[in-house]
């Protein structure tokens, strides 16, 4: 169980995340929604400790994550895999090596630095890639792949970390609709098959409603909605997104809104 208690992050005078208190049971697929700048990314980055909270505590299975440092912090990061909007792969490295980065915490440092990966780790990485039909392109440079393929490589990297949680920060925002669906399917599949908790930041309300069992709405850093997708009425969405509502809710809703010619 992941518990956030009064988690706050300030950047100078700006409060990006404001006293967020949240409990996520194991195996849940949670969509974090809200307009750009609502604090979604900062929230996820604090859970992985890429950003440190200014106040509040984050606990996982009763252990205080905010107090970790050194090896314990790296172990925690390996436990909560992160995915990014821009995939954050190393473009000049081949696909399999990018996936093996997810094994860095499991492999002795000298073996990893010399690229003498144990056969079992290579097998794990190749199996994860092949799950997305990408075993054949394992030797290609990551930068030669399309965005959708790169994000699936990033999922494979997250998966081979054998994480308890996957934190996906706008994983589909730079993808075309077809690839966005593929990536969301993959995340949902991982959640179902392996029981990995997934927290995913989404700008698109349609995708969030389709794939997540629980939605958490952020506005100006505060939790303003927390419940199942059915509970999120159009009015609630309107308050959450304001002027961006049409874009976030999707084309169908946008067509219903009056448009100036």
């Amino acid at each position: 169980m992941l518990e956030l208690q009064g988690v706050t992050r300030r950047f100078g005078a700006v409060t990006a995340v404001d006293r967020v208190t949240l409990t996520v049971p194991r195996g849940q697929m949670v969509g974090i929604i809200g307009r750009s700048g609502a604090g979604k990314s900062t929230l996820l980055r604090m859970i992985n400790r890429l950003t440190d909270p200014s106040e509040g505590t984050i606990r996982f299975e009763g252990r205080d994550v905010t107090a970790l440092s050194g090896a314990a912090l790296r172990a925690w990061r390996s436990d909560c895999a992160m995915m990014f909007q821009q995939f954050n792969l190393c473009g000049r490295l081949d696909v399999l090596t990018n996936v093996l980065v997810g094994r860095l915490h499991h492999v002795p440092a000298w073996r990893a630095l010399l690229r003498l990966w144990p056969e079992t780790d290579k097998a794990i990485a190749l199996s994860a890639l092949e799950q997305f039909d990408m075993g054949r392109i394992a030797a290609q440079r990551a930068e030669s792949l399309s965005g959708g393929q790169q994000q699936r490589v990033a999922i494979a990297r997250a998966l081979v970390q054998e994480p308890q949680i996957i934190l996906a920060d706008e994983p589909v925002a730079s993808l075309d609709p077809r690839n966005a669906l593929l990536v969301m399917e993959a995340l949902a599949e991982i959640n179902r098959r392996f029981g990995i908790t997934v927290l995913v930041n989404l700008h698109s309300l349609d995708l969030a409603r389709t794939y997540c069992e629980r939605l958490v709405g952020l506005a100006e850093g505060r939790v303003v909605f927390d419940g199942p997708p059915e509970a999120l009425t159009d009015e609630a969405a309107q308050t959450l997104y304001g002027l961006e509502a049409a874009e976030a809710v999707g084309a169908a809703a946008a067509a219903a809104l009056p448009v100036a010619a």
Partner: peptide, 21 residues
């Protein structure tokens, strides 16, 4: 609930991929 182990491909499918790489 424990996290299910990552499934490895059967050796017959893994071998050609590994040798190609």
């Amino acid at each position: 609930m424990a996290i299910a182990a990552l499934p490895l491909l059967p050796p017959a499918r893994l071998a050609p991929l590994a040798s190609g790489y």
